[in-house]
Computed example of a mutant assay.
Amino acid sequence: MDLRIFTEPQQGASYDTLLAVAKATEDLGFDAFFRSDHYLVMGDGDGLPGPTDAWITLAGLARETSRIRLGTLMTAGTFRLPGVLAIQVAQVDRMSGGRVEFGLGAGWYEAEHTAYGIPFPKEKFDRLEEQLAVITGLWNTPIGETFDFDGTYYQLKDSPALPKPAQSPVPVLVGGMGAKRTPELAARYAAEFNVPFASVEDTGRQIERVRAAAKAAGRTDELVYSNALVVAVGKDDAEVARRAAAIGRDVEELKANGLAGSPAEVVDKIGRYAEQGSTRFYLQVLDLSDLEHLELIAAQVKPQVG
């Protein structure tokens, strides 16, 4: 069972803060450090010191860590042209020695597009489908050959399809709760399917949809199935309450919708997700100053699920 640390830097985090969390992630034996790809704070708060770019951040962390996997949940397809994104991800993969995992989503938060002058197209999912085809097509084109793509939204002609990532292939993550098109995209392009912030029961239903889509597509390999869930673990009730309050959440709500409570409670909840097929968990850590939280999870949760 993989436990990964997942951060939301748009809520307010400098690169130095993210570096401290990534180094703790590595030192404490977690599998990976992931981050969101957003440019605007959500909910209350001023977001200071301001947004950090996902792939610039991961490029820096690629040179300052040595073991952990690095990736995004999810890169917003609206932020970058697919050819440029293929170059960026391939370069970071090389900079990390082949430790990148690439989550790509359609993009959804219109306000951040308005705030930074980024076009917010209506046909986001159709574009996502073409983006996945372009990016994986560029990476998979043999060296010395060229790549062409004639889509509705993107056209490439005589691309040298360089650089190549260190990994072949880079693991691609697709996620979401869509009932038809999302599972079909995962079946075609993904090594991993991520179920974001869903109940145990909804997770099971979505995993079954993806498995059915993979079977229909003729896949013979099994996808990795994962969950992203907010985490708030404490040695006692008071510590759980303190951690919930620090992120503006109610303890009982967190227990219902995330991984919260004592280490034993969290281990039990992880087990219920595992029964549905999940083998990887992205622990959404929202208070990035609380490195003792990571230490507790590493000491009292991770050994029981590893």
Rank of each mutant, 00 (worst) to 15 (best):
A106C: 11
G117E: 09
G105M: 02
G144Y: 09
F147D: 00
A106R: 11
N140V: 00
E112T: 14
G107S: 08
E130F: 05
G97W: 13
E123K: 13
I87C: 13
M95C: 09
L132P: 00
W139F: 02
G105I: 01
I143T: 09
I87D: 11
P142E: 06
R99Q: 13
A106G: 12
V89Q: 01
Y116F: 15
W139N: 00
A111K: 14
W108K: 07
H113N: 14
Y109W: 11
G144M: 12
Q88W: 12
P119R: 14
G103C: 02
F147T: 03
E145M: 09
N140Q: 05
V89I: 05
L132F: 01
T136N: 05
F125Y: 07
I143F: 05
P142F: 02
R127G: 09
Y109V: 06
E112M: 13
S96M: 11
V100W: 03
F102Y: 05
F120V: 05
I143P: 01
T114L: 14
T114C: 11
Y109T: 03
Y109E: 03
I143L: 08
G105V: 01
R94Y: 11
R94K: 13
E129H: 14
D93W: 07
E110G: 07
H113P: 10
S96N: 10
F147Y: 11
L138V: 07
R94H: 10
V134D: 02
F147W: 04
G103E: 02
F120Q: 06
T136E: 04
I135R: 00
R99N: 13
A106F: 06
V92N: 06
Q88K: 12
R127Y: 08
G137R: 03
W139C: 00
L138N: 02
A115M: 15
Y109M: 07
E101G: 01
G137W: 05
V92T: 08
Y116K: 15
L128S: 05
Q91T: 15
R127V: 12
V134A: 03
H113K: 13
Y109R: 07
S96R: 10
E145C: 06
Q131F: 03
T114D: 12
G137Y: 04
Q91K: 15
G97S: 14
V100A: 05
E129Q: 15
S96E: 09
D126L: 12
P119Q: 10
P121V: 11
D93F: 10
F102R: 01
Q131S: 10
I143Q: 07
R127F: 07
G107R: 07
L132V: 01
L104K: 03
G97H: 13
R127Q: 13
I118L: 15
E112K: 13
L132R: 01
G105D: 01
E123T: 12
W108F: 08
G107W: 06
E110H: 07
M95F: 10
N140L: 02
